[in-house]
Amino acid sequence: METPTERNAHLRDLVARGHALLRICTGSFRDLVPIIVVVAFFQIVVLQQPFPNLERIVVGLVFVVVGLSLFVQGLQIGLFPLGESMAHAFARKGSLIALLAFAFCLGFGTTVAEPALIAVAAKAGEVAGAAGFIGDTESSRSTYALQLRLTVAVSVGVALVLGVFRILKGWPVHYLIIGGYLLVILMTGFAPPEIVGIAYDSGGVTTSTITVPLVAALGVGLATVIRGRTPLLDGFGLIAFASLTPIIFVLVFGMAV
């Protein structure tokens, strides 16, 4: 049985959690407001047409706000504290192999579940199927979308390994990024035109909800352990890589498929 003080503590915990959820809810709603305002303005002032399936869209938007809020709240109470403490532990442990393996898995694992990437990959599969680029069946579309997501996830894993290696060696970040851009330009010439747009978009998608906080934690953890590194600059390096390598890997994926 719980004592009254314990029950009070639980109650307080519950209230605090509810408050946090409410705050995040207004946060995701705030993301949506500018879009709703712009769409409403164009609908009412410019288009003056009835919006099809309006009720379904309104219900869907509520799902988006509630879903995204629960998602972010879940990350904050469960995953982020564990991920951060592990990033610090690995940075301090001193085993290079274990650190690099953890960096890869962190990048891979967080990117596979990135909601924005799921959205773009699903659309890519749909469009590629409709254009006859791949077989136009439900299973081939979802296979294509999954392969795309795995490709991006592997690329973010590689980006983190590269980024950690860079922090340890102290290589300047600018040269690597400019070199990466040159590689992108070079590969664009060889890649099939059907993949280029998807590849460029996937670079902007990975730096979103889940990946950035965990990756920044790893960068800061490393930078505080190794002398002569600044957290701001090194955390940044990891994220810049994570938005560059997906482009390269998806271009390769396009050449291979």
Binding site: G60, F63, G67, L68, I77, A113
Partner: peptide, 13 residues
Amino acid sequence: YVLVGLTLFLVGL
């Protein structure tokens, strides 16, 4: 939370 949230988000998507 993550499971339920992502599920709702994908439906809304």
